[in-house]
Amino acid sequence: MSGLVTHFEIYGDEPAKLAAFYRELFGWRIEPAAGVDYWRIHLGSPANGTAAGGLAHPPLPDARGWMQYVKVESLDDSLAVAQRLGGRVVREKTAVPKTAWYAVIADPQGNLFAIWQPDRTAFPAPVPD
């Protein structure tokens, strides 16, 4: 269903330290994902909580706070509507490989949020190195 918040992310220059902060504060299970700079946040009980968010380095220079991801049917259509209504695209359409497309938008008052379109075929275009 579109319009629902799917997950959230928290950013910091030292995500591992931030993970310790939230673990102690809320009792969340926060574990580093293997081989990538990303910590998965599991809400609920430490043993069985489902992954509902993540901790990472800031994807944008001034990204601070909690980023909410909202599910949409079509990322392209939602970007167009957001811009027509005065929103600003802060991060262009980007792939999470074989998972989803996302983009970051600033609303007319400057609040950042992300939109998320699940897509098993999502993949970035290769670029020459």
Partner: peptide, 8 residues
């Protein structure tokens, strides 16, 4: 390949 981004 970075599995989080799909890029090299």
């Amino acid at each position: 390949r970075d599995p989080a981004t799909g890029h090299g």
